[in-house]
Amino acid sequence: MPISRATVEHIARLSRIALPDAEAALLTGQLDTILRYIEKLDQLDTASIPAMSHVLGLTNVFREDMRRPSLAPEDSLANAPAGDNGQFQVPKII
């Protein structure tokens, strides 16, 4: 079995998704099927093959570091579920 229930629960925590028991069980089975299919890549010897980083071989794109107009603070905050005093508001961290 390529993936265990405990691993799925651990990965869900890393992904910041709360996963009820029933969902974890279903997902473990589905991910197992998908990962078994993906294992077919092991048939290929890729030791000497480079990893493909970009389809067109594009490298870094640079621009001058200059001041440019940007969104007004009220536009940036307009979609926030909670905001106050020009800032995004979240539950207490510390």
């Binding site: 910041r16 979609n79 579920p81 909670a82 995004f88 539950p91 961290i93």
Partner: peptide, 24 residues
């Protein structure tokens, strides 16, 4: 993640549980 736009889980306004819990 419920901070900049869209949905934030109900009962996770700005008080109450932790930030991590709000994300999850």
């Amino acid at each position: 993640d419920g901070v900049q736009y869209g949905l934030r889980a109900a009962a996770h306004g700005v008080s109450g549980q932790s930030l991590l819990d709000m994300y999850e």
